[in-house]
């Protein structure tokens, strides 16, 4: 649809956005909904009662969602391969970016799962995070075109950094240094993991 409306645009320019969206939606939904569903059905209690540390259990849960997110990322790539030449893509940089986007998005999903009690709450919270993030991270509107007072908010979002790396790896149009973006994404991942663990210990074991 985007291509039809912008005939001059290239699919290659759209690909970073499509990849980022696939990962974001796949991972946040998976973790937020499945954990909330398991908790409301009380099967999650069985995991909490097993002799497995909470951090190990959380790591296992997020690993599943991360792998799912990475697979999701390659769905638009496979389709794009039929229409455009992907020879210029820096696959190593792109893969690492996909992995880090998957990790941060999964942890955002976990943060939602810790707060939500019902599946519908998890879905509502997920959209509350996801849609503003999509519009503010430079996917649809370039960061340079955003109003000045909104730009600081963009730089508080992990997806902004992930998208920037993808833009660089696929279309060669990044704003920031990939190393800086990797560092920021790693910092987001560590911070979110610690916040999630803290909230889990506070909210799941009363």
């Amino acid at each position: 649809m985007q291509l039809i409306r912008s005939p001059g645009g290239s699919l290659l320019e759209l690909l970073p956005g499509l990849i980022a969206m696939s990962v974001l939606f796949g991972t946040t939904s998976m973790l937020a909904v499945t954990i909330t569903f398991e908790r409301s059905g009380r099967s999650f209690d069985r995991l909490l009662l097993a002799p497995i540390s909470v951090s190990t259990m959380v790591l296992a849960k997020i690993t599943g969602a991360i792998v799912f997110g990475i697979f999701n990322a390659f769905v638009p790539v496979i389709f794009a391969a039929f229409f455009v030449n992907l020879g210029a893509v820096n696959w190593g940089v792109m893969l690492l970016a996909v992995l880090l986007i998957a990790i941060t998005s999964t942890l955002l999903g976990l943060l939602i799962a810790v707060s939500a009690k019902q599946v519908f709450e998890a879905q509502t919270f997920s959209n509350f995070f996801r849609f503003p993030m999509l519009f503010l991270c430079g996917l649809f509107v370039p960061l340079s075109s955003l109003p000045v007072f909104v730009r600081p908010v963009s730089f508080l979002l992990p997806l902004t950094y992930g998208t920037d790396i993808l833009n660089g790896a696929i279309a060669g149009a990044n704003l920031l240094s990939p190393m800086l973006c990797y560092g920021v994404l790693l910092a987001f991942a560590a911070g979110l993991f610690l916040v999630c663990l803290h909230n889990i210990n506070r909210k799941w074991i009363l």
Binding site: G41, R42, S43, D45, R46, L49
Partner: peptide, 11 residues
Amino acid sequence: GIVPDESNLYN
């Protein structure tokens, strides 16, 4: 071994 008041196995 723990048997809760409501069964918590996977449906």
